[in-house]
Amino acid sequence: MLLCLIGLYLSGCSDKDSLGPAAGPILLARGADVSWITEMEAAGVQFYNAGGTAVDGLKLLHGLGMDAVRLRVWVNPARGWCNKNDVLVKARRAHHLGMRLLIDFHYSDTWADPGQQSKPAAWTGMSLNELKSAVGQHTQEVLQLLKDNGIAPEWVQVGNETGNGMLWDEGKASSNMAGYAALSNAGYDAVKAVFPAAKVIIHLHNGYDNALFRWLFDGLKNHGAKWDVIGMSLYPDKDNWQDRNTACISNIKDMIARYSSEVMICEVGMSWDEADAAEQWLNDLFRSVRAIPDQKVLGIFYWEPLAYNGWNGYTLGAFDNNGRPTKALNAFK
């Protein structure tokens, strides 16, 4: 017994491997999208700390310095993963660790991104007004479930990578900006109805593409859309990350000045086997956003860093093929 307890203390010498919540003032969120974690665990995938011990993937990220998680919500996904109950499970785990929470509504049964913004099956055939109600109801239902369980997200995304709107075709920005603005506002109002203090994010892909952001947010503004935070994704490669960071920071400054918005970098990622470049890139990105005055950039989230060894064919995670974190995550300390 004595040996065991001593061993316990000896093994606990690393301060990167701590059970306690992170201390200090609440500043820039250093987050991860971990929406896959329950599905990966059910498939038998394990995560290992640097010492090779299998540990809880979420605690591992927390111990590496991450203080926030992002969770996607699908309306009625085919196999259940990322439905509201699954979201609650992951949110509760994060909440229990003292981590902050970003909820990401896709308003779809599956992936919503610039390539597809498919309506949930149950919403097909609805008029624009019916879709607005459905967006409001779904948003409130999911958030109320979290609230009923004592969990409050700090940020809520209405739509995912909606560079060309969402809930196509009624909410397709290029053909119906007014429709998109109306649907987005239905989400905004629903968020505020449940969590008045939560900040609402509208999130676009290609954070370096200022023209895209100006086109979309000018359009939304002209149609009375409401938002608190402009969100962006950024997926450079090892050869272009300097240029992309420069363009992204410039875009961020323009968004702050042009719309008086705060900014969240909702998704980042680089190929897991370019960890050296990824670490440099992310260190540079953190330095640059911290240099922006008044903490107008709220945080940076790595998208699904836990995905490894070909999980769902995704290669931009931050774990190596043995399930250990790469040095890319050093930037989140």
């Binding site: 316990l8 203390y9 093994s11 606990g12 010498c13 690393s14 301060d15 491997d17 701590s18 059970l19 306690g20 700390n49 011990t53 540990v55 809880d56 605690k59 591992l60 111990g63």
Partner: peptide, 8 residues
């Protein structure tokens, strides 16, 4: 002192 994650 910090404890190992695996302690519990």
């Amino acid at each position: 002192l910090p404890m190992a994650q695996s302690a519990l």
